[in-house]
């Protein structure tokens, strides 16, 4: 694949050292008025640069809340969120908006494309907010994601899988430090979902740091070698999985010698 786009290089370290830690969440709580689910209760997590991490948990466990706090779209009730050396709690609204624009790519379950803009225009929005025309890069991304031929279509005329690929292009247009994906295949059929997951795996192999939220353990372990389990607002497990090449017979047995005797 030529004309490939290099993603994930952390360009703007804010003077911080270039060690591999990218996200540090320390003892955060999030309390919602009226006991809405999704609260967090004392969560601490660090994410390394270049990691593909899955956050897994049932609905209402707080896993999406955690993602929103890392993205700077929401603020914790207490505790700190530091991303790329920037303490998000120290940023005002404008600073937080700038942080999101420059460092965060966000992919959602229901795409959230603007209906009155074409695919290409949707992809370009985050760059335009920055005053960056970026049309060359947008074209490259569309090409890369296999949606060049629908660039001028409106979202309503795209399939779910195409809409999600447009949303991914939009998330990548500003070369985000961190790509966040909240159930990105949740609204897709299995084939489109597999394509989206394949794409995330490819981006990760090229160095993109990815944080994936899902309730699906099969998806969580597809590319992520680290799975953080959240239940009732708490991290109950932080599993670092191994990824050796195993022979089929070491992974799955329809019937073993011993059992067949």
């Amino acid at each position: 694949m030529d004309g490939r786009i290099v993603v994930g290089a952390f360009r703007d370290g804010g003077g911080e050292n270039r060690m591999s830690e990218l996200v540090r969440v320390t003892d955060i709580t999030k309390v919602y008025q009226g006991g809405i689910t999704g609260a967090l209760n004392g969560v601490s997590v660090t994410i390394e640069q270049g990691e593909f991490t899955a956050i897994m948990g049932p609905s209402g466990s707080g896993k999406s809340t955690l993602l929103n706090l890392v993205a700077g779209v929401d603020r914790p009730t207490s505790g700190t969120v530091v991303v790329g050396g920037t303490d998000l709690g120290k940023l005002g609204e404008a600073g937080l908006a700038r942080f999101r624009r420059d460092h965060i790519g966000f992919v959602f379950q229901f795409f959230y494309l603007l209906p009155n803009l074409t695919a290409l225009e949707n992809v370009l929005i985050p760059a335009q907010l920055k005053g960056d025309p970026a049309s060359g890069r947008a074209r490259e991304l569309l090409e890369r994601l296999g949606i060049t031929d629908v660039a001028n279509r409106y979202p309503a005329r795209l399939s779910g899988g195409q809409q999600q690929r447009v949303a991914i292009a939009r998330a990548l247009i500003n070369n985000p430090t961190l790509l966040l994906a909240d159930e990105p295949t949740g609204a897709l059929d299995r084939r489109s979902g597999d394509q989206v997951m394949e794409l995330l795996g490819e981006l990760h192999r090229e160095g993109q740091t990815i944080l994936l939220v899902t309730h699906d353990a099969k998806l969580a372990t597809r590319h992520a070698a680290r799975v953080i389990s959240v239940v009732d607002g708490k991290v109950v497990d932080d599993a670092r999985l191994e990824s050796p090449e195993r022979a089929a017979s070491d992974v799955i047995r329809v019937r073993s010698e011993e059992a067949s005797r």
Binding site: A225, D237, A239, E242, E245
Partner: peptide, 21 residues
């Protein structure tokens, strides 16, 4: 908790095997 970990690892292995297949 230990068994859950073991199943996660198995899912990881199965995913990689499926991809390879």
């Amino acid at each position: 908790a230990r068994q859950k970990r073991a199943y996660l690892q198995r899912l990881r292995d199965l995913n990689r095997l499926e991809e390879r297949a």
